[in-house]
């Protein structure tokens, strides 16, 4: 296994862009902290690139399962009042959100 740790993607993170993608508003101070910290962590994590993984299949589940299904039958739903009681704002039995800028 080669251990050439110089092999890595150059770490250049636009934290502000990543934060927008993750829908997290950051203060200027936070931005500075993460700009300093994240490249260090990424740099450590990027060590995975030093391993020769040619021909190795990625594992996304620790258990080798396939075809887990439920049958198409209807079960109980939640009580609407109980559901809505947890919402920050409701109207006409629906959840209220401010103006939506983008269309999906």
């Amino acid at each position: 296994m080669p251990e050439d740790e110089s092999v890595s993607v150059p770490v250049d993170i636009d934290i502000a862009r990543v934060a927008r993608l993750a829908r997290i508003s950051l203060t200027g101070t936070e931005l500075g902290i993460y700009e300093a910290q994240l490249p260090v962590i990424i740099d450590h994590a990027a060590r995975v690139q030093a391993l020769d993984t040619a021909g190795i299949e990625p594992t996304s589940h620790p258990l080798p399962l396939a075809n887990v299904f439920r049958t198409d039958s209807v079960g109980d739903c939640l009580d609407r009042d109980e559901v809505l009681s947890q919402a920050p704002e409701t109207q006409d039995h629906q959840f209220v959100v401010p103006r939506i800028m983008d269309e999906a």
């Binding site: 006409d92 959840f95 209220v96 103006r99 939506i100």
Partner: peptide, 12 residues
């Protein structure tokens, strides 16, 4: 239109 609305209601 969605952009001109004051707010939106969501039914899941």
């Amino acid at each position: 239109r969605i952009q001109d609305a004051l707010y939106s209601l969501i039914d899941f």
